[in-house]
């Protein structure tokens, strides 16, 4: 019962998220340096909000997303690289936080899907293509001569 209650609570939360959601809520949250701010936004758009799970931390108005946006900007100002910040996020929240999963043993099939699927499609469609044998080859000298003789006879 309490479990389902938590679920309901989280659904209501998401509804609230959906209704009042917007990126960076106040302008003073943004970094004064536009290059760093752009970096922060592009990084934030690759991180999943852990409360409103179908939004990025950049889009979500959940308090935790706001905290994480703040952390991203703080760390960028301290001179950390986006890769380091992503590693920090993985250490704290696991692979769940990345909207683009890293290439690993678990995600190998996911990342190979385009290749596998194209190969399968190619193998299935291969017999359909017209083979070179179907296109008439040019006549050999011997055949040309024979044809010439036949026409002559007529």
């Amino acid at each position: 019962m309490t479990h389902s209650f938590r679920l309901i609570a989280s659904f209501t939360l998401c509804l609230i998220c959906a209704s009042t959601s917007y990126a960076v809520e106040t302008p003073d949250e943004m970094l004064p340096n536009p290059i760093l701010e752009a970096k922060a936004q592009s990084l934030g758009q690759q991180l999943r909000c852990l409360v409103c799970q179908n939004e990025t931390i950049e889009d979500s108005s959940a308090p935790l997303a706001r905290d994480l946006r703040h952390i991203v900007r703080q760390q960028l100002q301290q001179g950390h690289s986006p890769a380091e910040i992503k590693r920090w996020m993985t250490q704290h929240y696991g692979e769940f936080i990345h909207l683009k999963p890293s290439f690993s043993g678990v995600t190998i099939f996911l990342w190979l899907t385009p290749l596998l699927s194209l190969t399968l499609a190619y193998l299935l469609a291969r017999p359909l293509w017209r083979r070179p044998a179907h296109i008439a080859e040019p006549l050999s000298e011997k055949e040309k001569l024979r044809l010439h003789n036949l026409i002559k006879k007529n």
Binding site: Q45, F96, L99
Partner: peptide, 8 residues
């Protein structure tokens, strides 16, 4: 638990 989203 992992996520597959817009960047992917």
């Amino acid at each position: 638990t992992l996520s597959v989203g817009k960047p992917f």
